[in-house]
C-alpha cells in the first residue's frame, strides 16, 4: 500500500458517498446515467468475484464488498425508487452501451494475463469496461450542458481516483521489481484521459468557489 493508492481508494469511496447522498438521500437521479451505474455494477461484480476464493487483505476484502454493495444500491434505487425514477433523464441517457460492452468482452477473452484462466478473462473484461464506463455519464452531462454541483463533485472524485491510481502504478513500477500489469496501465491511461475535458471545465468553473456549477459547451 502506498499513499497514492490509498488516496485513490478514498477518492473512489467519496464518489460513491456523493452519489448515494444525491440518489438515496436527496431522492434525485437527475443528471445521473443509469447506464454508467449499471456498467460499474457489472465491473465490480465481475472483477471481485474472486472474493469467493482470494484473500489479499481485510482492507481489500471489505472495500470489494463495499464497492459491489454501493454500485448495486445505486442501480436499485435508480431502477425501482419512485422519486428517483421520476427524476431520471431516461430520454437523454441514450449512449449505446452495447458498443462498449461487446468489444470489452472480446478484448477480455483475447488479451489477458493468463489465457488458461477464465477468471483472468473476466478480470481483464472488467478492467476494459471500467475504462469506458464513464462515457454514458459524460454524454448525458454534455447533453444537459449545465451540471449540478453534487454531480460535478461526483465525476471529479471518480476521475481523481483514476489519476491517483496512475501515480500508484508509477510508484509500484519503480519500487516493486516484479510489478508489470501492462493491461491496467493502458486501460487506466485511457480512463483518465476521458476525464481530461471534464477536469478542465470543472477547474474553470470551480476556481471562483466550489458552489459554482459547471457549464459544458
Amino acid at each position: 500500500m502506498n499513499i497514492f493508492r490509498f488516496l485513490g481508494d478514498m477518492s473512489h469511496i467519496l464518489s460513491f458517498l456523493l452519489l448515494l447522498h444525491k440518489i438515496v438521500g436527496g431522492k434525485s437521479a437527475a443528471g445521473i446515467s443509469l447506464r454508467t451505474a449499471e456498467m460499474y455494477a457489472i465491473v465490480f461484480c465481475t472483477r471481485y468475484i474472486d472474493l469467493l476464493w482470494n484473500f489479499a487483505s481485510l482492507y481489500n476484502y471489505l472495500l470489494k464488498l463495499l464497492f459491489i454493495g454501493a454500485s448495486l444500491t445505486i442501480v436499485y434505487f435508480m431502477r425501482y425508487g419512485p422519486s428517483q425514477k421520476a427524476t431520471y433523464n431516461a430520454d437523454e441517457d441514450a449512449f449505446p452501451v452495447q458498443y462498449l460492452i461487446a468489444p470489452c468482452a472480446v478484448l477480455g477473452v483475447l488479451i489477458n494475463q493468463d489465457h488458461s484462466s477464465p477468471f483472468e478473462m473476466v478480470w481483464a473484461f472488467s478492467i476494459y469496461l471500467e475504462a469506458v464506463a464513464i462515457l454514458p455519464q459524460l454524454f448525458l452531462l454534455q447533453k444537459q450542458g449545465e451540471v449540478e454541483n453534487l454531480t460535478s463533485h461526483y465525476v471529479f472524485a471518480l476521475g481523481a481516483y483514476r489519476a491517483l491510481y496512475l501515480l500508484n502504478w508509477m510508484f509500484r513500477f519503480m519500487t516493486e521489481p516484479d510489478y508489470q500489469q501492462r493491461i491496467v496501465w493502458l486501460s487506466g491511461l485511457v480512463q483518465t484521459a476521458l476525464y481530461c475535458d471534464f477536469f478542465y471545465h470543472y477547474y474553470q468553473s470551480k476556481k471562483g468557489g466550489l458552489n459554482k456549477s459547471v457549464k459544458l459547451p
Partner: peptide, 10 residues
C-alpha cells in the same frame, strides 16, 4: 495471473 500474483488492487 501469469505473474503469479493475486490481484491486490481495487
Amino acid at each position: 495471473g501469469s505473474d503469479g500474483a493475486v490481484h491486490d488492487e481495487l
